[in-house]
Amino acid sequence: MLKGFIFFKTGKIPFVINNYRMELFTDDILLNDFCKEYNSKNNYLLNGQCFDTGISGRIAVFLVEYSLGTTCYLRCYTISMLTKDEHFRFDTIGLQSSFLDDIFRYKYNYLDLVQSGYNLAIQPIDVYRIPFDMNDLHYEFTFRIGLDTRLGLLENFDKKGELILPLHTKQIQECYNITQVFYRLAMFMTSLANVPFKQITLYNKGAKAGWFYCPLCSENILSGYDLYFHDFNVMKYIPKILNNIALDSGSKITKSIPLGHLGDFDSLFSPQRFMEQIVSFEYLFDKLDRKNAQNTRFPLKQELTHMFNEFPHLLSNTKASSEKTSEQIKELRRTIVHGYSYYYDFKNDHNIQYLMLLLDNLIKNMSLKWIGFSTEDILNYIIL
């Protein structure tokens, strides 16, 4: 829980934040004026101070998604290291995530560097530099491992890898867009919906300036996917995948690959996720074969058959044909959509589990093709 106050007109309004919901409270007429001004607005900024480290307030900026009465629902916020009433400046964002560590092969790079004679407890090393474009702006991020002893060895002793990215607009909205894109990158690479950041740091001229907080952050979840990326060619796959994901940094997806069908361990096998898989398949089929996608005489079964024939390796270890498999998926969709039956527990039906895992792989292959990878690249890509 975070406490503080926001600046409004010539006064201050106290707040309490819990789970990114800011509750404002005061007997002053100032709160009524605030409600009249902001209850009809969306996506606006508030400036204030928070008191999370004692009696000295630190500068804070809040991006409010929308307000209802005296409640502000926050999209994200930043907190400065400064306690003085100074302008909060930052020019770089640093993302720490155990999932990104796995994707960028932190453990394997660490071992290779140490065996080569590098002392990563003295000076950090940039392992990858990868450019990408987002919102008509050109970026280049660095994946960095190691500690800088000039800041003190225990300054961030738990830190492993960190993704460092210089900013253009240096605004909180840009930080939010960047976190969305790299969160989606981790989603696609791990095939999981819940891949939170551990910590997001803001820097100014190389020095730590503050922190960025959003619902995509959590310290309670750890990854365990490093084995899958043992032989992963980062420089071959990540630039293309990231550039595609960055085509859509907002909530509406029109150009990039779909990710809404991904789930966590609790929702891996459910009727809802199966239907989301179908939506993602249809979205990608429209991208890859617009003519047949718009043809009303080319139903779902034919679309599925066409795509399974496009990626025959998906059924190479089974006796089922593409036509039979497509018929099973089509029939499962029909029984759910038209209410002929409802499956309360997909986990007990092994055939449904197999079909859903097969759909996941098909969607992953179609996504890689839409990104622009060749058939050989797709066959050599790791499948999670």
Rank of each mutant, 00 (worst) to 15 (best):
P14V: 04
Y20D: 09
R21T: 14
L24N: 02
F34T: 06
E37D: 13
K41Y: 00
N43D: 14
Y44V: 05
Q49G: 03
C50P: 00
D52C: 12
E65H: 11
T92W: 04
Y110A: 01
L111A: 13
L113R: 14
I122Q: 11
D126F: 00
R129Y: 04
R129S: 13
D133L: 05
M134I: 06
D158W: 07
G161R: 02
I164K: 07
P166E: 00
T169S: 15
F182K: 07
R184I: 00
A186P: 03
M187C: 14
F188V: 02
P196R: 07
K198W: 02
K198G: 01
I200A: 06
Y203W: 14
F212A: 00
Y213D: 11
C214T: 13
C214D: 09
C217N: 07
L222W: 01
S251I: 08
S251K: 07
I257M: 08
G260W: 11
S267H: 10
Q272Y: 13
Y283K: 04
D286N: 15
K287T: 01
R290S: 14
F298N: 05
L304M: 10
T305D: 09
T305M: 12
E310A: 09
P312R: 11
L314V: 12
N317F: 09
R333C: 09
I336F: 12
G339W: 02
Y344A: 02
H350M: 11
I352C: 01
Q353H: 09
M356V: 03
L359E: 08
I371K: 10
F373K: 04
D377W: 08
I382V: 14
